[in-house]
Structure formats: structure tokens, C-alpha cells
Design a protein around this nucleic acid. Structure first.
Lengths: 164, 164
DNA sequence: CCGTGGTTGTTGAACTGTCAACCAAACTGT
DNA sequence: ACAGTTTGGTTGACAGTTCAACAACCACGG
């Protein structure tokens, strides 16, 4: 689709410049996430999703979160999280316990093995993020990136869920 | 993982500020792409990948590309593209023909139906991109986003593949 | 109480993407 | 001419995701 082929619709098209910027963003982000995913997988055997689960759990006092909170933090669907956690439980990285306050709920806790796997994985992942993103940009560029996407996230989620 | 728990490794950790920015970027981008995917799917029945295939084809003079070029443009694996194109061919959106110059090659062409589907889908998708990204940011922010991710892409792909 | 509606989490089927193996055609060097 | 390598593309098995249906539980108003 070229930019200068307006239809009878009341759509405001992107300018040529905006289109280039949009494609750069989409293409760059896609390749970046793919590279990070690939390197983490190679070096630690974890997917980025599993890694993020461990990170979120590691940040709570008792290394435990309700399934729903975890799903919200990660912006994953409930069923997706259930499947992921089941697999991680089979690998001994996390364990699930029924929740006392709310009998519907399930508490997901990080095991000691999960903690060790995370500690072992973190350095190389941080290095990947540095190599491919942080160190490639100026501090100002990187900060602008964060600010802009935070704005986007707030707009999308209605301002809620400040944790992620 | 908290930022202030250094290990014995020679890893430079992210500062607290960098970590927030990285999370904003990752979380914002994930939600943005998910929202765009979802809206496009709802409104047109296309996945963003199928949409991108049609866009790339529509931009060539004869609406045709070799499988490999298409795969490179989209940063998709060859096998992934084969599967995608097979499904799209079943829906009558594209068709494949052997390539004359190189008997190994396959030319992928957009059908008239594919064109019409794209023309019908484009306005609402552009609107989604506007609603959730372009119009949420200042022009400067959006431009900075594009520039930064272009830098990242060039760094990752070794500067090649300027088209995407 | 009871019932209605909303929340929490799981399940299984269908779909999509990944990975390794593979074939065929094209280069490469001798 | 021809073995060896590289490139282009496909295939099938497997892994991960989505979606709709479901069961269990809470909360609130008759």
C-alpha cells in the first residue's frame, strides 16, 4: 500500500515519513525481541516468557504470586499462563498451592531451583539487552524509548497496572 | 531480580532507571502489538503477518516476490513463510508459480482477491496504529522511536536489508 | 437462604511457529 | 565433466498459543 493512494474513506493515512518510522519501529522491535529470545534460549534453555515469570516471582517478598496477578503483570492470557506454569512446574522451577484467602485462587511460588536457574540466567540476558539495545543507543534515546512506550502502555491499559 | 544484588560475575547490571525504561519498552511494545493484532483480526480476519505479506507484495510492480525475499523482508524463517503462504494460497489471497530464471525459486503473487482484501483492511489497521501509537505520542517522540529502532535493526542485521 | 452474575483457574481442540531433515537446482574449483 | 558446497524451498513432527467451554467459588440483592 502506498501512502498516496487515498480512498473514499475518511481515513487519515500515515505520511511517508510516519510510515518509515512505523516500519522501523515494528521491524526493529521484532528483530530485537527475536534475537533476545534466541540468545536466552541458547544460553540458558529458558524462553523469555519463563524468564519473565521467574523475574516477577523473584521480586515479591515470599516469591509467590496469584496466577491472575502474574498473568496481568505479563500481559498474558490466563490459559496461556496455566500452560506455561504447568510446564515450569514439571521442570521443578515453580510450584502451585491453593490459596487460603480465596479458595478459587492458586498461589504460584518459585522453587529454590527456580531461583538458582534465574540467578544463573540473568547475567547473560542482561548482557544481551545491553549488547543489542542499551549500548547501541545514547542514554537519551533509550530514555525516550522507555518514556514513549510507557505512554503507550498507559493509554492502552487505561492507566492501570503500574507494576509492569 | 533486583538491580542492587551484584554477583561475583563481571556483568554490568542495568541501573534502576534503565531497568524501568527497559520494562516500559518491553511491556508497552508487547501490549501494543497484541492490541493491533487483535483489532486487525477482529475487523478483517487477517493476522498481522498475513497483512504484512500482502503489503510487501502490493509494493512491487507486478505484485510478486520470491519466497526468500519475502522471508527476509518480514524477518520470518523460510519454513514459517512456507506455512503462511500455503494457508494464504488456500484462502485465495496469493498464488505460487515456479520461477523461470532460477528453477529452484518460487514466485509468490498476490491475487486480485488478495488486493481487495488488503485495500479493505488497510484503513482500519492504519487507524489502529494511529489510535494506539502515533496519536498518543508527540511527533518528536514518534520520530525518536523510529530512529532508535532503526539503529537497533541496523546493528542487528549488520546494516543489510534496508528495505524493511 | 437462594439465585444470579462475576471472578479464578483449568482443560482440550485447533491453530501457528520452530526445528531438523530433506530434495532439487545452482555455483565452485579442478 | 563432475564431486562438493551453497542456496531455495518444502515437509512433518513437535512445542507453544488461542479460543471456547467448563467447574468452582465469591459477592450481593432479593
Amino acid at each position: 500500500m502506498t501512502t498516496d493512494t487515498p480512498t473514499a474513506q475518511t481515513v487519515e493515512w500515515l505520511t511517508a515519513e510516519q510510515q518509515t518510522q512505523w516500519r522501523s519501529f515494528r521491524g526493529g522491535a521484532a528483530r530485537l525481541f527475536a534475537a533476545l529470545e534466541h540468545e536466552l534460549e541458547q544460553q540458558t534453555g529458558l524462553s523469555t516468557h519463563e524468564y519473565e515469570v521467574l523475574v516477577r516471582l523473584s521480586e515479591t517478598p515470599d516469591r509467590t504470586l496469584r496466577m491472575a496477578q502474574l498473568a496481568d503483570n505479563l500481559a498474558h492470557s490466563r490459559s496461556r499462563l496455566t500452560h506455561t506454569i504447568r510446564r515450569m512446574e514439571e521442570q521443578g522451577l515453580v510450584s502451585r498451592l491453593p490459596c487460603v484467602e480465596d479458595a478459587r485462587g492458586v498461589n504460584c511460588t518459585m522453587t529454590e531451583k527456580g531461583w538458582q536457574v534465574l540467578v544463573a540466567a540473568a547475567p547473560s540476558h542482561v548482557q544481551s539487552v545491553r549488547d543489542h539495545l542499551v549500548d547501541v543507543l545514547t542514554p537519551e534515546q533509550f530514555a525516550a524509548l522507555g518514556d514513549a512506550m510507557e505512554t503507550v502502555r498507559v493509554h492502552l491499559t487505561g492507566g492501570a497496572c503500574h507494576v509492569e
